[in-house]
Design a binder for these strands. Structure first.
Length: 854
DNA sequence: AGCACGCCGACT
DNA sequence: GTCGGCGTGCTC
């Protein structure tokens, strides 16, 4: 008998290794690397993934249990994806079970279900029967019963069931079940034409409908849904059933794909003629695809420069070779517009995956990919795991977007996974952005450019410092730089005005709209044009304070000010979801002078209506787009010009393209600048540049007005001339001085605990252990030239949000040069820490290459 | 992560 | 004297 090595679905570091199981004869032949199996594990039955097969000789067979089951006819993961999962676990220091789970559609996240049956032949003593007769009766009616169902029926009998199990009067069985519903449709299958004609001849003259039905099938022999056939023929399903009973046709339940885009027509679109600039950018990418080279490209194109058409044509090249393509877009720009462009070009060959699909819909799209019915996958972050087997191209649009980094474990970055996966397949990678992340950009500039002379466009300003990324760093991405510096049709970038709100105040304007913005809005209303307004804060007011005693409303579970929401009249914590009623007097001193400060999107909406009576505003933020399809609904309304203003948080900044938008207003450009995060300036610059790109994308010229209290901050000032290069140069200078990415790398380790003192002690002992190890390894100590240390351990310090969901948080940061093996080193240290943490009840969370410092 | 086994307080 | 609290330890 052979042996399967299984990663069980327990997301803990202690069980993060393969466990060996015997493959029983009945399952022989069904088990492969990547199979999903059910295994007995410590007294229960769990889902697991087979990561290896061994011959019996190599393992000690005596103590092995057998696999309980193989859960799918076709393994959901390929050996290649299992390998990718192992790579991810090393790269982001997370248990393999978690990496593997991330690659499966949610529908295949197996759940252990317990079933209860009456023990066969067991005699119930009279007194037991008296007390627990109702349980016995329930099980006599239906058996086996789900434990969960039984508990629902008898909520207070949990202990009783346990007792009866122990006494051997009840028995328990466990099964791993999918969270899955495959929709089936009753489908009619026609027999061979000859049989069909015989059937028609045999039908009595008065059964006209039956005859018609068979005649229809003779003309249309392909399988058809019973319902549909009945409609076509103009009869009821009874006719069809009658025919089935006679054996004249076959009726079967057939699994149906839930097509989330069913009933929508996507007019076929032909490739557009590329502009000379597009063609120049396209050439090296197409070349790499044609030659099946694993090259990575940074396609740096300003907003409106036509990157998408380049993606589409590169994908076509890839399909022509009978290879497959993955396109990642940020969740937020996975709008109908984007999907439509891909569906129009590639039709049925496109599978779409995003979070708004139900588990079932997503599973169906996933199966279309796996079964080879789709060759292009477009989706958010997790689409990088699309189960293709011959990938030729991976595109990551808006490469700089933070949503590519998953904030929960596995804390992977889809961009890095993409490059690794492409390497496995010999596929090309295109990273597209108008505002590339500094990491990608610096690496590309360091490597050089594909097109001669292109480097001039951006490179000079980036400075020599960008080469600081260590050349020996083996997992560093080194993209070929492909600039696309002009907008299609030579449309100019919109003019940008920066308004200093301090000056407005001096002029006596205390409103949230500056004179310039108010005038510009009014002009759009008069001309019937549209505007987009950005304010990156939802809710009505951002904090609540008592003017008598200084009390501020804080979340009782987090160290965070509560935000006032107008619609629901409550105060809410945006981190844990806590809500309380709006106070009318100060909860602390009962003074009526409790006031709401700070501006959120709700308040702007109100101010718009007051300032411009009759204005039609669509507000888009987390609060108005939580419903399925609402995002799409608002955008459609806006496109159809049923509103004058689209007001929202950063979700209005990305990827939208409306011809009548001629004004973009940013209400508080500096709102994110004060955050304690070294990427805050980069993010602000990116957000402002992106939102500015929403204006004037078609015939009408665009205008951008940015309100700020910090007009001279580079993140704001340099947006004025869309000066990515100048901003980048400055910012890279700062990063270099501080040893931040891309000049150094970070691993953040956050410890959390319900009690602060225990946490502080633990944090300190952990940090000093790390430091000891580092110095023992000769990694610390500044060198004689004042160059940064190879590795530094910073902290522990309280996290920027010191308490979240009733847990205190402390963090350590490991800052290191790219040529140091900090991952292996940290993994070891964590192993030790994990043991200590378990005793004290602390939680550890590791973030390799953190994107958010909060 | 759970579920077992194992040692100390409030009940029959 | 028993039921049950949840503290450590293991799971092929």
């Amino acid at each position: 008998m052979s042996v399967a090595r299984v990663i069980v679905d327990v997301p803990s570091r202690e069980t993060d290794r393969p466990f060996d199981y015997l493959i029983p004869p009945r399952l022989e032949g069904w088990v492969e690397v990547g199979s999903r199996v059910a295994v007995p594990f410590g007294g229960r039955t769990l889902q697991g993934i087979v990561v290896g097969l061994a011959e019996d000789a190599s393992v000690d067979l005596k103590r092995l249990k057998e696999l309980a089951d193989v859960l799918d006819a076709v393994p959901p993961l390929s050996a290649e994806l299992v390998e990718l999962g192992e790579w991810m676990s090393r790269r982001w220091l997370c248990p393999l079970a978690i990496s593997l789970q991330a690659m499966l559609p949610a529908a295949l996240k197996g759940k252990t279900e317990k079933y209860i049956t009456l023990a066969r032949g067991a005699q119930w003593p009279a007194d037991t029967l008296e007390t627990y007769g109702d349980l016995k009766q329930a099980l006599e009616r239906h058996s086996p019963l789900k434990m969960s169902g039984l508990l629902q029926q008898f909520p207070d009998r949990a202990d009783a069931i346990k007792k009866l199990l122990k006494a051997g009067l009840l028995e328990e069985a466990q099964k791993v079940e999918d969270r899955l519903s495959v929709r089936t449709v009753l489908t009619v299958f026609a027999p061979e034409p000859d049989a069909l004609r015989e059937g028609i001849a045999a039908i009595p003259a008065r059964a006209a409908k039956q005859r018609e039905t068979l005649e229809y099938l003779l003309a249309h022999p392909e399988p058809i849904a019973q319902q549909r056939l009945a409609e076509e023929v103009g009869t009821g399903t009874a006719t069809i059933r009658a025919l089935a009973d006679k054996g004249l046709l076959e009726l079967r339940q057939v699994e149906e794909d839930r097509d989330p885009y069913a009933g929508r027509n996507f007019p076929q679109s032909a490739p557009m003629r590329l502009t000379p600039a597009q063609a120049e950018a396209f050439a090296p990418i197409a070349g790499a695809v044609a030659e099946r080279r694993h090259d990575v490209f940074l396609l740096h194109g300003v907003t409106g420069s036509g990157k998408t058409e380049i993606y589409l044509q590169a994908i076509q090249k890839c399909l022509d070779q009978d290879r497959e393509a993955i396109v990642l877009v940020p969740e937020i720009s996975l709008t109908p517009q984007m999907v439509e462009r891909f569906k129009s070009r590639f039709g049925e060959r496109v599978a779409v995956m995003h979070s708004r699909l139900s588990n079932g819909e997503r599973y169906d799209e996933w199966r279309r990919i796996r079964d080879g019915r789709a060759q292009v996958a477009i989706g958010a972050r997790s689409a990088i795991f699309a189960p293709f087997s011959r990938i030729g191209l991976i595109v990551i649009d808006e490469e700089h977007e933070t949503s590519y980094k998953q904030e929960e474990s596995p804390k992977y970055h889809a961009r890095d996974v993409a490059v690794e996966r492409a390497r496995q397949h010999g596929a090309a990678v295109v990273l597209g952005s108008a505002t590339p992340s500094l990491e990608t950009y610096a690496a590309a500039i360091a490597r050089g450019t594909a097109a001669a002379g292109a480097r001039r466009a951006y490179a000079a300003s980036a400075g020599e410092g960008t080469t600081a990324l260590s050349a020996s760093e083996d997992d560093a991405i080194r993209p070929v730089y492909v600039p696309l510096p002009e907008r299609v049709g030579d449309r100019p970038l919109p003019g940008v005005t920066i308004v200093d709100m301090r000056e407005e105040l001096k002029l006596g304007n205390r409103a949230m709209f500056s004179g310039a913005l108010a005038d510009a809005l009014r002009a759009r209303l008069e001309r019937g044009e549209q505007s987009v307004l950005l304010l990156n804060r939802r809710g009505y007011s951002t904090f609540v304070m008592c003017r008598s005693c200084g009390y501020t409303a804080q979340c009782p579970h987090c160290d965070i000010a509560l935000t006032y929401h107008r619609g629901s009249q409550n105060l809410r914590c945006h981190y844990c979801g806590y809500a309380e009623r709006e106070p009318s007097v100060c909860p602390s001193c009962q003074s009526p002078h409790i006031r709401f400060f700070g501006t959120g999107t709700q308040k702007v909406e109100e101010a718009l209506s007051q300032t411009f009576p009759g204005i039609r505003v669509i507000r888009m933020d987390v609060d108005t787009t939580s419903e399925k399809g609402s995002h799409e609904k608002w955008l459609t309304q806006f496109r159809e010009r049923r509103a004058d203003v689209l007001l929202g948080t950063q979700m209005v900044a990305k990827g939208l393209d409306f011809p009548y938008v001629t004004l973009v207003g940013v209400l508080a450009a500096d709102s994110a600048l004060k955050l304690p995060d070294f990427r805050a300036p980069e993010r602000t610059f990116q957000l402002l540049t992106q939102v500015a790109g929403r204006a004037g994308r078609h015939e009408l010229p665009g205008e951008v007005i940015i309100q700020t209290y910090e007009p001279e901050h580079p993140s704001v000032a340099l947006v004025r001339h869309h000066d990515y290069a100048a901003f980048t140069e400055q910012e890279l200078g700062h990063r270099r001085k501080l040893g931040y990415p891309p000049f150094g790398r970070l691993i953040s380790i956050t410890l959390s605990h319900e009690q602060a003192p225990a946490l502080i002690a633990m944090g300190q002992s952990f940090a000093s252990k790390l430091r000891e190890r580092a110095s023992a390894a000769g990694l610390t100590g500044s060198n004689a030239y004042g160059a940064p240390n190879a590795l530094e351990v910073l902290g522990p310090v309280a996290s920027p949000i010191p308490r979240l969901k009733d847990r205190y948080r402390f963090q350590c940061m490991i800052k290191y040069r790219g040529d140091v093996d900090a991952l292996g080193w940290t993994a070891q240290a964590l192993q030790e820490l994990a043991e200590a943490a378990k005793r004290t009840g602390a939680q550890i969370s590791v973030d390799v290459d953190p994107q958010m410092m909060l």
